[in-house]
């Protein structure tokens, strides 16, 4: 397996690009790359040439996270002022605006079934679930404190929730916090199951394997990528190699490899069978905030694609094979 650089767009945004995700292909068009940036815009790019399709404005602060519905029809973007905009991918019509108190929206993810949007609740130390049909709040899943609430510690800052991920079957939800703990929830019962220990610095990104619903990959500021058996509450493997914070992680559609982006300005490809980095891409000149594998599907596209976005305002596209 290897990555080969295909295309790179310098100055794709006016400022740092912070988030990237793929909008799955629909009948009428192929998959699109969705990026969010500090310049308060969200942009849509068509692959493989990375032609700018549209620029969505409307956020007052930098866009910290973007998410795409599995249908490929709608997408959501969230900015630092905790303002979530859900819009039609093709028309840019606003479908809903979800407002939360500031500091209480961080990462967004649609569940694989497309019925729910999970929002990492930042300072509220919880995950909020929104119904994608009515755009009502379905549930709030709070993270319990390990030692019970302390009266002196009023601030919830210890459990600031940064990241969220759905299992491939949609039954489990994992979230990463700034203190390094990972919490697993049972979605159907809206119940907290357990913590996964191992990281001791913020977990900024996590992702379930598309093949194995138990397998969870996490990226943390402690420069490690962990592989957990989420059900078994156990650390399966720890992979080191990045020289700075690991900011993002994504699993390849075949479940055989993961890609990570890091503050050390590199993108690494890890072979899961070898549990080691097989390739390091250092084409970015600043920290890499997002990596995303293109989901399979669409008209005649069989080859794998990986996109990475960085503080250097550029987007890079690689061929994954």
């Amino acid at each position: 397996m290897k990555l080969a650089g295909l295309k790179s767009v310098e100055n794709a945004h006016d400022d740092s690009v912070w988030a990237a995700t793929w909008v799955p292909a629909t009948e009428t068009r192929s998959a699109l790359l969705l990026t969010g940036s500090l310049d308060e815009t969200v942009r849509l790019w068509s692959s493989d040439e990375l032609v700018l399709e549209r620029t969505n404005t409307g956020h007052c602060l930098g866009v910290a996270s973007v998410a795409a519905h599995p249908s490929g029809l709608i997408a959501a973007s969230a900015s630092l002022d905790s303002f979530v905009r859900v819009f039609d991918v093709d028309t840019n019509a606003t479908i809903a605006t979800l407002e939360a108190p500031p500091s209480e929206v961080w990462q967004l993810r649609f569940n694989p079934q497309g019925s729910t949007l999970a929002v990492a609740g930042g300072g509220s130390a919880s995950i909020k679930l929104w119904d994608t049909a009515t755009w009502d709040l379905i549930a709030t899943l709070p993270i319990p404190r390990p030692e019970g609430p302390k009266p002196s510690d009023k601030s919830g800052s210890k459990k600031f929730v940064l990241s969220v991920a759905w299992s491939s079957d949609g039954k489990r939800l994992a979230c990463g916090s700034m203190d390094g703990t990972i919490s697993i929830f049972d979605v159907a019962r809206a119940k907290f199951l357990h913590h996964l220990e191992g990281h001791f610095m913020p977990v900024r990104s996590l992702v379930y394997s598309p093949i194995e619903p138990r397998l969870l990959f996490t990226a943390s500021d402690d420069m490690h990528v962990h592989m957990y058996d989420a059900e078994g509450k156990s650390l399966v493997g720890a992979m080191s190699g990045h020289e700075s914070w690991v900011l993002s992680v994504d699993v390849s559609p075949d479940g055989a490899a993961i890609a990570t982006g890091s503050s050390d300005r590199t993108v690494r490809l890890w072979d899961l069978s070898m549990r080691a980095a097989v390739q390091t891409m250092s084409n970015h000149t600043d920290q890499v905030w997002g990596v995303a594998f293109r989901p399979p599907g669409g008209s005649g596209v069989r080859t794998g694609r990986l996109a990475s976005v960085s503080d250097d305002k550029s987007i890079s596209l690689y061929d994954y094979s």
Binding site: D81, F83, S124, S155, S157, F160
Partner: peptide, 23 residues
Amino acid sequence: GNNLNAWQLSAKMALGALLLEGD
């Protein structure tokens, strides 16, 4: 201009700080 919120951004962000550290 393009402020879609009922809240003004600055006030909202100030509130954000308070949500984290209300005391």
